[in-house]
Design a protein around this nucleic acid. Structure first.
Length: 552
RNA sequence: UGGGAUGUAGCCAAGUCGGUAAGGCACCAGACUUUGACUCUGGCAUUUCGUAGGUUCGAGUCCUGCCAUCCCAGCCA
């Protein structure tokens, strides 16, 4: 498997070839603790930690916690857990931008002393007006030429809490006429009389991202600062700070396209709305693209990493098909998940010629893809459940499951033939009467008879009741990522089945255990399970040729 | 009408010094099958690389123009 190098690796290779950074490669993953991680972050995590791994370098975890009004410890804990769950470790390199507040303050003072930053008294509205527009240059703030001494004094007083929020800011003195709006004297410190989740009330001025990020990178000795495309315009500013402040190293920013997935939304604002409005059951709702949601759904770290690996890294805006993610989890679970039988929509079958009270125990292989998984015993008796969809009174041509007069195989057990159908007064099928062929024990005969259909089943007296939750896309349209996205929420994204019959081996299984329910899909044990009353989440269906035929 | 970026199949995405369009997903057809699963085989950009020209024996790759899409005017990150 020739792995091709992506454009980031090519840049790093070139840097290495030129002997930059003494051959070191050091990256960082810099989340803001203001929300839960989603699969888009997983791409960034895999790239940041993955690159470090590949080049024998290091990757730091650094929280970009410079906006206390939005941030919370709840989020830092969940973020740490999700990264570990994915299988990455920052070892002893857990940092916070807030660790550097003192140092960043000193850097700001340094800029002031160099005449490269000034305290500005303009109001937020005025700053916007002075900034100009996309097509017109801005104009200088009347406070732009304050003396170094005055700026020093005012900045210190800002720090000391002598001013109200919005009254003053510290700005970098760059170029109000720059075609790049980010260079038009960006604000680098603002006053926020808000307590910070880590520094408490120690500070009432907080650095802005554009100032903090490059300098934090430099402080940590980051060599390659990987981020998403929207920061491309910020790179000149990133470099400006690195070049105009006496930092210990010179990191380099490289931008790549963030991940988008169809049939879902990825923005924090939209995700938080889904949670707060109760449109899903929480951040870890199995329909959410959050890592904790995917985890609860049953996705594995391996499948997510494989997915990220397959989509590649580039600069093109793209929307990846959710089918690729599903392919990745099927691919993994096909090899690792044990097969069991579960009937989601049961209909009872009575085998008239099978002795009442008799029970036979058949051997069932746990995973045909993995002989080491061994076998288990499953009970067979006169009354069983099969899937309602596996019977049709008046079957179409290509239907080769059970129907009146038809013979099918019960997986691992016997061939049965349907003789009669019992209905209730509403015309619904209540039970099916069949006969079995004793010669087909184990599900096979020597006479060369061809039985095309094979059904899964569960012995009625041995069955365990289970709740099974079936999920579909959260949105009904491929790209719901517009302002009226709530219009496209899929009303059928969750179907709860409460009368499912599963084989007795599933009565009490550890949370998050994955199974393949034969012919039905891959399922994961939900956190709501209690012993004797398991709850399963459908991760993904099996590929279903029959469903395709039906849809034609 | 400013700046930054991107345009290769339905969706991602490789395409080194220009040498005659990787791979995956999806889809289609078939084989196999005690899961209509898995696996396997074959098909799927030869008026084609956003588009129009140009250079060249030869252009997805170089040059010029044009078009389309995305991002930027938070004291968010």
């Amino acid at each position: 498997m020739p792995e091709s190098t992506n454009f980031i690796e090519e840049i790093i290779n070139e840097d290495l070839r030129q002997g930059k950074n003494d051959g070191r490669v050091h990256t960082r993953f810099p989340p803001e603790p203001n929300g839960y991680l989603h699969i888009g972050h997983a791409k960034a995590i895999c790239i940041d930690f993955g690159i470090a791994e590949k080049y024998n370098g290091l990757c730091n975890l650094r929280f970009d916690d410079t906006n206390p009004v939005k941030e919370d410890v709840e989020y830092v804990e969940s973020i740490k857990e999700d990264i570990h769950w994915l299988g990455y470790d920052w070892e002893d390199r857990l940092f916070y931008a807030s660790d550097y507040f003192e140092r960043l303050y000193e850097y700001a003072v340094e800029l002031i002393k160099a005449g490269k930053a000034y305290v500005c008294d303009l109001s937020p509205d005025e700053i916007r007006e002075y900034r100009g527009t996309l097509t017109e240059p801005g104009k200088n703030s009347p406070y732009r030429d304050r003396s170094v001494e005055e700026n020093l004094e005012l900045f210190e007083r800002m720090k000391n809490g002598e001013f109200k929020e919005g009254e003053k800011v510290l700005r970098a003195k760059i170029d109000m006429a720059s075609p790049n709006i980010n260079m038009r004297d960006p604000v680098i410190y603002r006053i926020l009389h808000t307590s910070h989740h880590r520094t408490g009330n120690k500070w009432c001025i907080y650095p802005m991202y554009d100032f903090q990020h490059p300098l934090s990178d430099a402080i940590e000795g980051i060599t390659h600062s990987l981020c998403s495309l929207e920061y491309e315009d910020h790179r000149p500013l990133y470099n400006w700070f690195v070049e105009n402040v006496s930092v210990p190293s010179k990191p380099r920013q490289i931008e790549f396209a963030r991940l988008n997935l169809n049939y879902t939304v990825m923005s924090k604002r939209k995700l938080i709305t889904l949670v707060k409005e109760g449109l899903v059951r929480g951040w870890d709702d199995p329909r959410m693209p959050t890592l904790c949601g995917l985890r609860r759904r049953g996705y594995t770290p391996g499948s997510i990493k494989a997915f990220i690996e397959k989509i590649g890294v580039a600069k093109t805006y793209s929307v990846v098909d959710i089918a690729l993610l599903e392919h990745c989890i099927r691919e993994e679970l096909n090899k690792t998940a044990n097969r069991v039988m579960a009937v989601l929509n049961p209909v009872k079958v009575i085998i008239d010629n099978y002795p009442e009270g008799q029970v036979e125990w058949f051997d069932a292989e746990n995973n045909p893809e993995n002989p080491d998984a061994g076998t288990r015993k499953i009970p067979f008796s006169r009354e069983i459940y099969i899937e309602r969809d596996d019977f049709m009174e008046d079957p179409p041509k290509k239907f080769f499951r059970l129907a009146p007069g038809r013979e099918v195989r019960l997986k691992h057990a016997y061939y049965i033939t349907c003789n009669s159908v019992v209905k209730n007064s509403a015309g619904e099928i209540v039970e099916l009467h069949c006969t079995y062929d004793p010669a087909s024990k184990g599900g096979w005969t020597e006479d060369g008879r061809r039985v095309q259909g094979t059904l899964h089943w569960v012995s009625a007296p041995h069955a365990v009741n289970a709740e099974i939750r079936l999920y579909d896309n959260l949105f009904t349209v491929e790209n719901p990522d517009s302002d009226d996205y709530l219009k496209y929420i899929n009303p059928d994204s969750l179907k709860v089945l409460t009368d499912c019959k599963v084989e007795q081996s599933l009565a009490d299984v550890p949370l998050e255990t994955k199974f393949q329910f034969l012919r039905m899909g891959y399922f994961s044990v939900d956190y709501d399970s209690i012993p004797g009353k398991p709850v399963f989440n459908r991760i993904v269906t099996l590929k279903d040729t029959w469903a395709k035929i039906q849809n034609k």
